[in-house]
Simulated assay, not measured.
Amino acid sequence: MLTNEHILKTLQKIDDPELHKSIVDLNMVRNIQVNDTHISLDIVLTIQGCPLKAKIQQDVEEALKAIGASNVSIKFGSMTDEERRNLTASLKSENVTDKGMPKMLLPDSGVKFIAVTSGKGGVGKSTVTINLAVALARLGKRVGILDADIYGFSIPAMMKIHQKPTMIDQTAIPVVSHGVKIISMGFFTNENQPVMWRGPMLNKWIRNFLVNTHWDELDYLLIDLPPGTGDVAIDMAAMIPQAQEIIVTTPHLAASHVASRAGLMAQQTNHTILGVVENMAYFENANGEKNYLFGQGGAEKLADELKTSIIAQIPFAQPEENTGSSVYDEDSIIGEVFTHLAEDMMYQ
């Protein structure tokens, strides 16, 4: 016999797809009515037009039919403003200390921060960020990307993300792509409008991304820094002193010379340099011959100068998916390079 208690116990196992919390614990399940094997109930969504409404409906219907319901009728509504404010306060209390510090920044949080930087644009810094993040996620890690390149944000476009983060009051729920949670200024601008801010506003938004984003539990947060040694890089060094850094360059000597400034800044702010990633290292033809289109030696020179090592050399190649995405297939040559790099990061 179906009872309200049995139904609630069953639905307790269903999570909100964005908040990753039980829909029962979130008080989203209401007004359960049972008539023999017919069940009707209300599901109160966090916001109107919840993008994952269909997913919640499917999960609820399948769960209840598995315990004997022949018909499930669901009426959807949305939380009141007060309920959303209370939910936001609850989420924030999980993420932020009483003094306003993100709990992930506490020494015992267990979150590893990896900042990916370069001396100049166009060397593949964002490509390294997203593919390393995806590789870590494929290995079972809980991973987020904070796109801190406020002026030159590119992560959403490179990962072919068209949706926006769900906003619950002032709290953003990161968009998930390839198993990675992502927040970016690109989600908050109109199409491709430029961001024209000075230092204080940059600092405010980076802090917002840390404080007012419901990251939930993470093992790694990768930070795609803007190239160079400007305001964002300085603020990030102050906000996340425990971050480790990867320096991205090409083999060209001029590129590595510029990249050394980013590496020297990391050293001056007491960030550990994990190593140098050499992107566009070579092109391998059908005969297996390597052609060094940008020359050789730049990454080695940079690694020697920074007293670190080259941790990956990435050849020229197009992502195999014909979608415009910059995420490489796991079984591709470059995908394997990032898998090995991710495995190395797990032992750092």
Rank of each mutant, 00 (worst) to 15 (best):
M1D: 09
N4P: 01
K13M: 06
I14F: 03
I14V: 12
L19I: 12
N31D: 15
N35D: 15
I39F: 09
L45W: 04
C50E: 00
C50Q: 06
D59E: 15
E62F: 00
V72A: 08
S78I: 07
M79Q: 14
T80I: 00
K92V: 04
S93M: 06
N95M: 15
T97N: 13
M101R: 15
M104W: 00
P107E: 08
V116T: 14
K120R: 13
G122V: 03
V123N: 11
G124R: 03
K125D: 03
T129E: 00
A133R: 07
V134R: 11
G144F: 02
I145R: 04
F153E: 06
A157H: 14
T171N: 10
I173G: 03
H214K: 09
E217Y: 07
E217C: 06
L218C: 02
D219G: 13
Y220P: 05
P227A: 01
G228Q: 14
V232N: 01
V232C: 06
A233G: 06
I234P: 12
A238H: 11
M239K: 12
A243Q: 07
V258W: 04
S260P: 06
S260G: 09
A262R: 02
L264P: 01
N270H: 14
E284V: 01
N285Q: 08
G288K: 08
G297R: 12
T308R: 02
T308L: 05
I310Y: 00
I311H: 08
A312N: 07
Q313V: 02
Q313N: 14
F316H: 14
A317C: 01
P319A: 15
S326D: 02
F338W: 02
L341C: 12
M345N: 09
